[in-house]
Deep mutational scan, measured.
Amino acid sequence: KTEWPELVGKSVEEAKKVILQDKPEAQIIVLPVGTIVTMEYRIDRVRLFVDKLDNIAQVPRVG
């Protein structure tokens, strides 16, 4: 699995749990929505963009 659209609106902790069940090797990085990030693709990275309430604001994707 490479993306988790069902996690939008969920808490960071809930999202981490689901992603690590699907992809145990994932390196999860939590960032505020709108953060500028590098464009290199990494198969072991999932970025979680969160709103001010620490809920997932964008679809988490591998990369």
Rank of each mutant, 00 (worst) to 15 (best):
55 N>A: 09
44 D>L: 04
8 V>N: 01
44 D>R: 05
60 P>I: 01
6 E>I: 03
41 Y>W: 10
16 K>F: 05
3 E>C: 10
1 K>R: 09
59 V>M: 06
19 I>M: 02
34 G>K: 07
63 G>T: 10
44 D>S: 09
25 E>W: 08
40 E>P: 10
57 A>W: 06
32 P>E: 07
31 L>C: 13
35 T>M: 07
19 I>L: 05
63 G>R: 08
43 I>T: 15
47 R>M: 15
1 K>I: 12
36 I>E: 15
56 I>V: 15
6 E>K: 05
44 D>V: 04
34 G>L: 03
15 A>Y: 00
55 N>T: 13
47 R>V: 15
49 F>V: 08
1 K>P: 02
52 K>S: 14
62 V>N: 04
27 Q>E: 14
25 E>H: 12
16 K>V: 06
17 K>Y: 10
16 K>P: 00
55 N>H: 11
31 L>Y: 10
41 Y>I: 08
17 K>V: 08
9 G>S: 03
6 E>H: 07
29 I>S: 12
13 E>T: 11
31 L>F: 09
24 P>R: 04
57 A>T: 11
1 K>L: 04
37 V>Y: 13
10 K>P: 01
16 K>H: 05
34 G>W: 06
31 L>R: 07
7 L>F: 01
32 P>F: 03
60 P>H: 02
31 L>H: 09
14 E>M: 08
49 F>G: 03
51 D>L: 01
3 E>H: 07
25 E>L: 09
35 T>P: 07
50 V>H: 06
34 G>P: 06
25 E>P: 02
30 V>D: 02
18 V>P: 02
35 T>W: 05
49 F>C: 05
35 T>E: 14
61 R>N: 08
40 E>T: 07
32 P>D: 07
10 K>C: 14
26 A>K: 04
9 G>K: 01
47 R>T: 15
23 K>V: 13
46 V>M: 06
50 V>R: 04
43 I>N: 14
2 T>F: 10
11 S>I: 04
52 K>P: 12
55 N>K: 15
40 E>R: 07
34 G>V: 02
24 P>A: 05
54 D>L: 09
5 P>H: 02
41 Y>F: 10
29 I>Q: 13
